[in-house]
Design a protein around this nucleic acid. Sequence first.
RNA 1: GCAGGGGUAGCCAAGCCUGGCCAACGGCGCAAGGCUUAGGACCUUGUCCCGAAGGGGUCCGUGCGUUCAAAUCGCACCCCCUGCACCA
Length: 960
Amino acid sequence: MINKLADIERKWQERWYDVGINEAEPDNRPKFMIIFAYPGVTGYLHVGHLRGYTYVDAIARYMRMNGYNVLFPVGTHATGNGAISLARRIKARDRATLDYMFANGCLESEIKNLEDPINVVNFFNDVYVNQYWKRFGFLADWRRFTCTIYPDYQKFIQWQFRKLKAKGLLIQKPYYAPACIECGPVAVDPSETDLQKGGRAEIIEYTLLKFRCENLFLVAATLRPETVFGQTNFWVNPDVEYVKVKNNDEIWVISRPSFEKMKYQKEGLEIIDTIAGKELVGKKCIAPMIHKEIIVLPATFCDPSVGTGLVMSVPSDAPDDWIALKELQENETMLSKYNLDPAEIRKIKPIPIIDIDGWGPLPAVEIVEKMGIERSSDTRLEEAKKIVYRDGFHKGKMNSNCGKYAGMPVQKAKELMRDEMISTGEAELFYDLSEEVICRCGKPVVIKKVPDQWFIDYGNKALTEASKRHAKTMHILPPEYYINIQNVLDWFRERACVRQGNWLGTRFPFDEKWIIEAISDSTLYPIYYLVSKYVNEGSLKTEQLTEEFFDYVFLDCGDPESIAKKIGVDLELLKRIREDVEYWYPLDINLGGKEHMTVHFPAFLMNHVGILQEKYWPRGIFVNWYITGKLGKISKSKGGAEPIPGAAERFGVDTMRLYYAHIASPFADVEWDEEALENYKNRIDRIIKTIDELRSLNGMEEFRHIDRWMLSRLNSRIRAVREGMKDFDLRQLANEVYFEMINDIRWYLRRGGNNKKLINRVLDVWIRMMAPITPHIAEELWENLGKECFVSTSNFPNVIEEEIRFDVEEAEEFLKSIVSDINEILNVTGMIPNHIRLYTSPKWKMQVFSTALDLAKRKELTIPGLTKIVMKDQLLKTYGKEASDFARKTAEVLLKCSNDELRRFEAQFDEFDFLNEAAQFLRNEFACEISVYSADDPKAPDPQNKAKLAIPRRPAIYVE
RNA sequence: GCAGGGGUAGCCAAGCCUGGCCAACGGCGCAAGGCUUAGGACCUUGUCCCGAAGGGGUCCGUGCGUUCAAAUCGCACCCCCUGCACCA
């Protein structure tokens, strides 16, 4: 069976690709262009990646079957150091890496070749296309394949950057970024691709405050520059040897470790001497901003590896400072050891500076008391600090001790005060990592100043506004992201777009020492698929991809004749590419994983808006969530999931496609679960068996109630699918086609359905509806029906509204409810039935019921109103209290009904005739005699007097 | 910290926008019966609690509230998860 599946898959893939139904050229149909965000070439992909890719192929197939000319191109993203780092590990014959390669099917003989990063890229390009995408039957236009390190692609990226510059969207300024002291720039992120340790570290911005002390500057590093108004003294660790550092004309005192980091951020720093901490104790220095003289005091909590190892003291808001001050004030030995005047020291009092809701004037003092912290060695000080800092930052306001900053929220004051001190020369910035970070090479990672870094200015107001406005017109899924992308675009700011170091990518056109960074060269690229085909087929050469060329084909600028002549390209070809762009662009859907929400998608959108004409701005974004492993996220580099070809072999491609489409909403993570795959495999088997069963029936000509029902359901299903697919809801499609349909067919067969024409119709529609998700099996079944074209290029079924028969479906529901009522009676009583008698509602009750229904429809139904009408009726009156009771009950029920429910009751069918027709079915179901009577029939046997319970839609039941 | 997502029966997972066919789609698991040489698959029925007559009770993280009516709307709380920029 497994082999048979694989054979079917291969057979149809060959036929599709032979005929080229996957290849797209402009014609007179409406177009639909869709891509998935191309994967980074950093190793083998896993079953999780196929989720999104499968959505794209299924959507593309659906649109193709709906008359669209569909373009679905693919490519890969090789920029960065993924391939470099893999090649390096292979070269080192790293055991784990080799195991990983072999486990995924790499041959021993390839290994030598993969020592070169470029070969790694080419190797994986082949794996992705042939082992994954073609293996999954994607109808992608392979001719357009491109990769970010192809020379033609790079010409395109250089053009893109020229355009960004021309639009004023490239800016240059200093930047502070993590870099290994040996290898250059590295990425600090939890995946630790570049690192040995410290992936969780964050970049911290310290404000360096300069305290003049004789001819020196004591330099404290702080995270809270807004607290300078609360300074009471200065802290130095008496046991630490500090260094004197020449910084331009100034001599700074800082710790040695901080110098080691700072030298990467400030030019020309130089150690000229050392100075012991204890030498500084007791000296006076001038505090920045407040220009007050304060005293230098000893404190052991000053850690030379944190900040500069020197600390300004704000005991009102810093628990450390408060405890240290208190300890010193109470410690005679210490005071005398350092020759400090106890009276002067004890005079020092915290100065309240920030008002925080829910706190007194001195939050540090308060929290220390509340937590019962006594010593500066208490580890809970860290927590205390966090609490005060958090509340202060979010809820605090500067108080009247803070000069012109009084009344200002802390968040705002912090920035303004920092900037003011920087501009007066009293402060500078210093960046550090929150924890130790070690490069893969073993050397430390520091924050390094890049003085001339280039940025793309995504903070540009006009660009942001235009992008936000445009995003509102886009089809963005899920709907939550449609809303959220507005915030993301606001929050998106200038982004470093080039880097130096060991890195694959495109040279920055304005300065060759830079390489364009990985996010920045993968934003506008969908449009490049319209050119890559011509390069791949050889009719365009890389050197012909000049600025004028792209200006013309993408921007419609310039004169084609002179450009054609100048670059030596056939004029017709040039015009044709221009027409291709005009036809295919804009992109209709860009689908990508949720990691793209705050990075790739906004950049993708803003580059389109920034560079292209409005008519080429993208039309849609689709975000999909992940397949996770049992232990969390499946990782490309760390493995943990079944290799794709193995899974395809075991379960079958269509099974996997159905799994992706149906297992959950695309907007939720799903755990990879082989048992679920087995179940989907069974599901497909079952469908094949059901189809065999249908085809083996000796169909008849007569068209009966149940055939009418089946036809109606069939159309209802098509309608539900089409409704769902307006939002590309593949799960809805899968649910209707692979689950609900089969349930309908089961019921149809159970009811004895067997109409030849109808069965053919059902098969025709059903199989076509399978084509987007399980195309191989759909083709095979389609061929078995004797069809000659591809199901993949047939039309997706349309709803025929007249065939939807609400009354017929309703009658069938009526029957199902009787079956379920009888089952319930049998279950509760434990009886084995010999004879079941059904009594349909008497006429007079139907009359009351339909009167009530009319009133309810007009929203005029009331209990007394209905009763009055009933009791006025000559005939009904004769039923006396029974009639008024029934009127009341009916009114009560109908008053609670929604409009949909009322609509159901309106469906007209003759219950008595219908049940008589269905009696044979019920006889089979319950293996006993079934009799149907009208409750009006005085001759009907009714030993337990049940018939009086009969009401419309609810026949009385008597089991014996 | 910034910005988001989510808590639904034994499990997975729809529904929530647009309140009422919701004891809550569907699937898995489990149980009984059928089919089958057997297993798997398949078919039927059941699977919150009570019930020897189709009924009743309770239920969608917790607590309030709006409404004739709340899984669905509002407020508050608790708990989980995700992304966050030179990583793609």
